[in-house]
Simulated assay, not measured.
Amino acid sequence: MSAWGKIFTAIRGGVSEATEAAVDNQSMRILDQEIRDAEQALRQARSDLAGIMASNKSMMRRIEESRAKEAKDSDSARSAIAAGRTDLAQGLAQRIALVRSELQRDQQELDGLIPRQQQMLRTIQDTESRITQMKREVDNVKANEALLRAQSAIAHNQSGVNSRMGTAMDSLGRIKKRQEETANRIAAGAELAAIEDGTDLDRQLREAGIGRQSQSADDILAQLMSSAPSAEQNTLAPPPKRLT
C-alpha cells in the first residue's frame, strides 16, 4: 500500500471512530426516537386493523341479509309454484340466483379478510410486547447510565478529596514539626539563660543535696513533734503555783 493509501485509510478510520463516538453519545436519544417511530407504526397498524374489522363486520352483515333474502325468496317461489304462478316463480328464481352470486362473492372476500385480520392482530400484539420490553430495557439502561455517572462523579470527587486530604496531612505534619522545633528552641534558650545567670548551678546543687536551705513541711512537723513534751509529762508535772 502506498503512503497516500495508508494516510487515506487512517483518515477513514478516524472518521469512523468519531462517528461511532457520536452515535454512542446520542444512543439514548436514538433509542427514544426509535421507540417513538415504532409506536407511530403501531398506531397506524391499529388504525388499519380497525378498518379491516369494520369492513369484515359490514360484509358479514351483508352476507346475513343476503341469506335472509334468499330464504324469503325461496319460500315465495315455492308458494308461487304451488299457486300455479310459474311466471312469478321464474322471476324469484332469477333474483335468488343473483343473490347467491353476490353471496358467494362476499363470502370469498370475507374468507380472505379474516386470516388477514388475525395475522395483523398477532403482529400488533407482538409489536406491543416488543415495544414494552424495549421500554423496560431503555429505562434500565438510563438508570444504569445515571448510576454510572453518579459513581464516576463520586470517584472523581473522592480522588480530589484524597488528594486534598493528603496535602492537608502534609501541611499538618509540617506545622507539627515547626512547632516542635520552636518549642525546642525555646527550651534551649531557657537552658542557656539559666546557665548564664547561675540558676542552673543552684538547681544542680539542690538536686545533689548540697547547701540545702529550705525544708519541707514534713521536716518542720517532725522537728516540732520531737521538741514538744509528751502527754504523760503534762499529767505528772505539778500545777503551777498561784500568785497571791
Rank of each mutant, 00 (worst) to 15 (best):
A41T: 05
A155M: 13
E128A: 07
N56P: 02
P240E: 11
E102T: 02
R185I: 10
A168P: 01
S171M: 10
R61S: 08
V161Y: 12
A45Y: 01
R178F: 06
E181N: 11
E137W: 09
V23S: 08
Q44A: 13
I11K: 04
D202I: 13
L243K: 14
E39G: 01
A10Y: 07
R116F: 05
D126Q: 10
L221K: 08
D37A: 08
D87F: 00
N162G: 02
S16Q: 10
R164L: 12
S16K: 12
Q119H: 14
E17L: 11
T182W: 11
A194I: 01
D202P: 01
T199M: 02
G166A: 12
I7A: 14
I7W: 15
N140K: 15
E20V: 07
R67D: 02
D32M: 09
R178P: 00
L243M: 14
R46K: 14
R67F: 02
A150I: 07
G189S: 14
P239Y: 05
S230Q: 01
M165V: 10
G14Y: 09
G209P: 00
L147Y: 13
I154D: 07
D200Y: 13
E128R: 04
S163P: 04
A187V: 09
T167A: 15
G84L: 00
F8H: 08
I186G: 00
D126E: 15
Q108E: 13
Q107V: 02
L92F: 01
A41R: 11
L148H: 11
K177T: 10
S76Q: 09
K142F: 02
S74E: 07
D111C: 06
I175K: 12
A183T: 06
S27N: 06
I154P: 00
A150G: 09
K6E: 06
V99S: 03
S16Y: 07
K69L: 04
S129I: 01
L221G: 04
A183Q: 10
R116C: 08
G160S: 12
Q125N: 12
T235E: 10
A50F: 03
E181K: 13
A80E: 00
T127K: 15
G166P: 01
S230W: 00
Q104E: 13
R67K: 09
A187D: 11
V161H: 07
A168L: 05
L201S: 13
A146C: 05
A208R: 04
K135D: 00
S216Y: 03
M60R: 05
S58N: 08
R46H: 10
L172A: 15
F8L: 10
E65Q: 10
Q158P: 02
S171E: 07
R203Y: 15
Q104L: 11
K6L: 15
I30N: 06
L113G: 02
S66C: 05
E191R: 15
R122E: 13
A150M: 13
L147F: 13
R178D: 10
L147G: 06
L221W: 08
E17R: 03
I114W: 03
Q119W: 09
I154G: 05
P229I: 01
A153D: 05
A80L: 00
I11N: 02
D73H: 08
L98V: 06
G91W: 01
A83M: 03
S152P: 01
